[in-house]
Amino acid sequence: MRLPRVFDRQRRRYEELVTRHLDGVLDAAGEARLQQLLDSDEALAVEARELDAVTALLRAEPLVEPPRSFALPYAPARAPAPPHRGPLRWMQAATATAALVLVTLIGVDLVVTPAAVSEAPESSTATAEQAPAASQAAPPSSDALALDAAVSDGIQQRAAAPEPEPAPAAGRSALDWAQFGFALATALLALGVALVSWRATRSRA
């Protein structure tokens, strides 16, 4: 049966306290807390005593004597000094940063560009529809006539020009997403290389 979470927490707390106690690194407050736990639960008290006995048994074990001396009979060749990794590290950081910037730019482009493309046809259509309505509502003045002629020319030009198709927009979006994915993968790869290099440097140090 699965114990409620509160008991798991209490159990983990006990395990940490008793481990620290056995290793002699538990402070006074921790000792008091552990004692409180042991006083409230006889099973825990028994377990703690048994763990204490096991630890004592382990620590009483002497080291196995090595079969021979491992002193070096001669000085082996020193490993070559590690290459100066400063420039390489800067280049890795720069690559990761550039890749992140690229990802950000493409992401922003993806978010902004489709909205602009979708708004453009709607506004032009609205202009074309509103223009005749306006010309019907008011008597034509000379300026209005000139404007009307210009609008009519614009409508005719638009009618002559091919209408923007949704399919090419979708194709471009897919291409953008592919670019975004590629840039993201590059950025993650660059970050991974930089992280692995950093950890390797730390472990060698």
Binding site: E15, T19, R20, L51, A53, L57, L58
Partner: peptide, 22 residues
């Protein structure tokens, strides 16, 4: 710490005869 606790607990079970004998 957690591996220590689990290891010691397992050793307690494995070494119970030795500990009882002692």
């Amino acid at each position: 710490r957690s591996r220590l606790f689990r290891g010691r607990s397992r050793l307690r079970d494995l070494l119970r005869p030795v500990l009882e004998l002692s």
